[in-house]
Amino acid sequence: MKHLFLTLATITTLLLLLSTPPTTTAANAADNIVYDVIGEPLQAGQAYYMVPYDYSDVGGGGLTWLQKTKVTCAPYYVSQENVNTNFGQKIAFYPQTPGQTDITLSSILNIVFSSFTPPINCPGTSNVWSVAADPATRLNFIELRGSRGTRDLRTWFTIEDVDQGGYKISYCPRNRRVDCGSLGIVSRDFGRWLGVNGTNPLTFVFESEEFFLNKALGTKSYAA
C-alpha cells in the first residue's frame, strides 16, 4: 500500500509538471526576436529597408552600394545615402541555422542586398555583405564579395539590441583576426562607408516593403 501511494504521488506530480505552460521559456524566446518598426517579427529572406533609428544623429539615410573608384570591376562597398530622405536599397537576412524563420538576437546570419545584381563580367562580386580589410587605412569596410551559407567568417553578422531603442549590427568572428565591433559610418574618400568599429556606430530599425510604401504614400504614420 505504501508503494501504491508513492506511485500515485509521483504520477500526480508528473501530470502537474506536464500541464504547466512553459511561460518563462516562451517569454524568453519572444524577447530574443528582432522586430520591425510596427512590431512584426523580422522574417528570414524577406526584404527590408534598414534605416537609422534617429536620422538627426547621423545626417544620412538608408544603405546602398557604391564603388570607391570607376575602375572596371572595382569592389562594391556598402555605403550610406547622403540625405535622410533617401531610404536606400532593400536588404534581406539569412540565418546560419537551417529552417529558422524568425530573425533572433545574436543569431549568426548573412546580410544581402536583395535587389543587387552582380555584373557578370566581374567574378567574385556578389550581393552578400563581407568584411574586407583596407591595408591603407587599417580599417575594415563592408564590401559585396561574400557567399551566402558558406563557412567564410567574413560574411557572418549578428543583430543586437540597443537599450536606447533600435538595433545594431555586430561582427565578431571566432578566429578574432580582426577587431570585434558594431557597424558604423566612416566618412572618407568622398563617401559615407559602412565599416566595423566605425567612427559613428549606427543604430538601425527595419521597415518592411509594405510599410515603406504606405509611409511613402502617407497612409500610415511612422512610429519607430
Rank of each mutant, 00 (worst) to 15 (best):
N121Q: 09
S107T: 13
L109E: 14
C122V: 01
T125H: 01
N121C: 03
T104F: 00
T101M: 12
P119M: 05
T125G: 01
V34F: 00
G99K: 00
P95W: 00
T69K: 02
M50C: 12
L63P: 08
Q67L: 05
G99C: 10
L109F: 03
L66C: 13
F113T: 02
F87N: 13
L105C: 09
K70M: 15
S114V: 11
T117S: 15
V58I: 14
T97A: 09
S79V: 06
N110P: 14
T69P: 09
V58A: 14
A47P: 15
I91F: 10
V78T: 05
G39T: 02
F113W: 02
P75R: 01
P75S: 04
N127M: 05
T69Q: 03
S115R: 08
T117R: 07
S126N: 07
L63E: 09
Q80N: 11
V71H: 05
Y48F: 03
A47E: 15
F116N: 09
Y48T: 04
T72I: 08
Q100A: 14
L66T: 12
I108N: 15
G45D: 10
S126V: 00
V37H: 05
V78P: 08
G60A: 04
P123G: 01
C73S: 01
V34P: 12
N110S: 12
T117Y: 11
S56Q: 12
K70I: 12
I108Y: 14
D54M: 04
S107A: 10
T85K: 00
N127Q: 03
T117N: 14
P119Y: 03
P123C: 00
T72Y: 02
A92G: 13
G99V: 06
S56G: 05
A74C: 08
M50S: 07
K90H: 06
I38A: 07
P41L: 03
Q43G: 05
P119I: 09
L66F: 12
Q67R: 01
K90P: 14
E40C: 09
S79T: 09
D57Q: 07
L109T: 06
P95I: 01
S107F: 01
I111P: 11
G45E: 11
I38Q: 12
D57G: 00
A74W: 04
P119H: 00
P95K: 02
V71S: 10
Y55D: 15
T125D: 10
Y94T: 04
G62I: 00
S114E: 14
S106H: 13
S115T: 15
Y35N: 06
S107H: 04
N110C: 08
I108S: 15
I111Y: 08
F87D: 14
Y49R: 03
Y55C: 13
V34N: 07
P75A: 03
Y77A: 08
N84T: 10
S56T: 10
Y53V: 07
I33V: 13
T64L: 05
F87K: 11
N110M: 12
A74H: 05
V51A: 08
I38N: 14
Y77R: 06
D102P: 06
A44D: 09
T69I: 01
Y55Q: 14
G62Y: 00
F113S: 00
G62H: 01
Y35P: 07
G124M: 12
L42V: 13
K68S: 15
A74I: 01
P123Q: 01
F87G: 10
T101W: 06
I120M: 11
N121W: 08
Y53F: 15
T64Y: 04
L63Q: 06
Q43N: 09
G45C: 02
F93A: 08
